[in-house]
Nucleic acid binder design. Sequence first.
DNA 1: TAGCGCATGTAACGCGTTACATGATTAC
DNA 2: GTAATCATGTAACGCGTTACATGCGCTA
Lengths: 179, 179
Amino acid sequence: MALSHAIMTALLEEDLTGYDLAKKFDTSLGFFWQASHQQIYQDLKKMLEKGWLQANTVEQSAKPNKNIYALTDAGRIELDEWVASATKPSKVKEDLYVKLYNVGHSDCSPLIDEIKQRKASAENQLALYRKIRHRHYGKPSALPATRKGIYLALLAGIRQQEMFLGWCDEALALLDGLD
Amino acid sequence: MALSHAIMTALLEEDLTGYDLAKKFDTSLGFFWQASHQQIYQDLKKMLEKGWLQANTVEQSAKPNKNIYALTDAGRIELDEWVASATKPSKVKEDLYVKLYNVGHSDCSPLIDEIKQRKASAENQLALYRKIRHRHYGKPSALPATRKGIYLALLAGIRQQEMFLGWCDEALALLDGLD
DNA sequence: TAGCGCATGTAACGCGTTACATGATTAC
DNA sequence: GTAATCATGTAACGCGTTACATGCGCTA
């Protein structure tokens, strides 16, 4: 299960609650691995049982108590082993490309609209990534080791979006006036 | 469930058995949507119940009987509706980028090796895509409508691999001598 | 004679999504 | 007064993976 490892990765820098983790999976780390809070809470439970994490409970009045999770030594070892092990590239599941196989059999104007929509959201995502790069990752070669990896993940996100935008334009040009 | 729709897409051009479908999901359509034979047989059963497909049984001696599946009118309608409906981009789940967040906390030489491996398989995949383009999709604008969509899917695959190869080189350059 | 291709399936399990549930505080 | 934020969970269901199972014909 790789979600566990993504959670442990998030706990490398700081201890967090389930709630904080869910937020983190909505932003930074979440650009590359998505998870809902329901999934996270379930997984945290399992990881406690396995001894990969420990929980410190903070009593709060007027709010549910917080459980702040931290990596244990066993968790660190498990995480290191995962990083060192080769994992398979994830399976591709992209509806949009499957839909393209229907061009010529179905009306394709809704498909053109969908490409336009995806293009617009790719533009937003790209703008966000570029902003982050600009703010935090000015000179890549001068970054400390702990930031270089994160920079490279960000760069992959940027390139991905740029590539997709280029493809969208080409697709729209070829499909234009086809329906 | 989008697997059903991917299967119906595969049946647009020709009627196929479960076995044939499984093979198709290992190649062409399978570049963009992967599925195992177990999944496919389960799904075919459900689709029959829904009336999206019909099965013609071909008796064979010395081999199990074949069930050849064909789209019904109800299936065509369902497929068209799916193509016309906007679906969410699929969730990103990419271990490699999560692992990058561990650079500086873990030994990163296995990670460098993994990037090299992925680079090699991206090169193979790219070579395959280019071969297909060269053989079957010479002049995109001259293609019949039914081939244009498939060409665009192929093009997305090509760009994806090219982009990834560029990223690998940049990543390897930045990580070189870091461990 | 061992392994691959053809052709079909079942069963168990784990991962992921959706819906449901609580309840106080703060900001508009 | 309405919605968002904080903070935690349960339950049902569906999708996906892995392992297991059968059995003939062909080729190396």
